[in-house]
Design a protein around this nucleic acid. Structure first.
Lengths: 215, 215
DNA sequence: GACCGCTTGTGAAAACTATCACAAAAGCCC
DNA sequence: GGGCTTTTGTGATAGTTTTCACAAGCGGTC
């Protein structure tokens, strides 16, 4: 069978569409045109149609897309029609913020384990999850069938934690530590660096996005 | 004068180079080749040279780039050779995580004001910054010459906060609330959506990045 | 059932980004 | 100073993503 690559930006837009569709559905809207969806999401209608067309054609010409069907289909495309077991490595402030953030649970991500290496934190509970010693990570990750790991440790610890996660069988890692971590090709890795976001703002304000040609 | 647009991804790579250069400099390394820099950063050497060449030529053929000079130049290019006054709107867990995150201060971002609408939080201090009532945002933002605002409120409040920030003269906004906010063209806006990051992981695990062609 | 207004789905074109590959330095050694 | 090695800077090339533009399909109306 032939396969097509879907670009990362297209996948991110799908997430975005999903959020919009959920709010349209909650408001009782039955159908939506690519034009309306685009207007609400700040993109173009051609982009919306192209993105959706990669996965089949579920719109009706003249009418638009049926909101509940499209919402369900994107949920499925994104793999959000199942629940994912996620662990948090690092029980600091950022870990706490992610833990209490309702958006994860709502979209199918269950935080089933939390690790730290600080004995004053180990043993505490966040909601109904106990903070475990990071030394027990391999055993706990296996026992709870953790599929994704989120690294919210200081930079120094990130690589070691990533190695442990991989050895324990985690398939995907979201890394918030500000350093590059290496993982085998078959493990999905995504980095989020909060400082970089502010730095791009600084660049934009400094240069208004353009710089003099050097020649 | 002719101007050139620098792509967003190139700017993000500059941030990345900067971080690497800082660690090379701390280690006492005097020069570095595009090849080494690329290897450490997980990109190609041609990419590194192309990115840098947009801003002039500071390498020496046969030798590489002088680490301190390049570090200083990228700092300047990113606009990090000055300090930026930043405010945090929302004194919840995510706000707390950003506040204590050392990377901001180190790169030149000073959190000079924090706002919330919860009376149990207003009046408290985080470090030496008092949490102010969001109703006072316009006055405080002006008084403290805040240039960038970070929105870490629930989704419902985001647009109103953005409007207030813009009216108070903030030039750039980093939005962590999971909804689209509208700002005038001249205000720089960047969104960070933590749920989307996990959703792209879910997509990748579900499909291994490719999907069957529909025709 | 023929026309009309609207909206999809999609090839083709345009715009943008990354990679290649190589001539032109620069340092070094004899 | 000539030859050798290394590495930059950059046109040319290849690849990817977005936008354009329009035929085809659908529902409604007369």
């Amino acid at each position: 069978m032939a396969f097509r690559r879907i670009s990362d930006s297209a996948v991110r837009r799908l997430s975005h569409y999903l959020r919009l569709l959920e709010s349209f559905e909650a408001a009782g809207q039955r159908t939506i045109s690519s034009d309306d969806l685009a207007a609400r999401g700040g993109m173009t209608s051609a982009q919306v149609r192209k993105d959706l067309s990669h996965f089949g054609s579920f719109g009706k010409r003249g009418l638009g897309y049926p909101v509940p069907v499209l919402r369900a289909r994107i949920t499925e495309i994104l793999g959000l029609d199942k629940r994912w077991n996620v662990c948090l490595v690092g029980a600091g402030k950022l870990g706490a913020a992610l833990h209490q953030y309702g958006g994860f649970r709502r979209q199918g991500f269950d935080i089933v384990a939390i690790f730290d290496n600080d004995s004053t934190r180990i043993g505490r509970r966040w909601g109904d999850v106990r903070i475990d010693d990071v030394a027990d990570l391999p055993a706990v990750v296996r026992a709870r069938r953790v599929e994704m790991g989120v690294i919210v440790t200081p930079a120094e610890a990130a690589q070691e934690v990533a190695d442990d996660l991989v050895r324990a069988g985690v398939e995907a890692i979201l890394n918030f530590a500000p350093r590059k971590v290496d993982v085998p090709d078959e493990v999905i890795l995504r980095d989020v660096n909060l400082a970089i976001e502010l730095e791009t703002l600084s660049f934009a304000l400094t240069h208004k996005g353009r710089i003099p040609t050097t020649r």
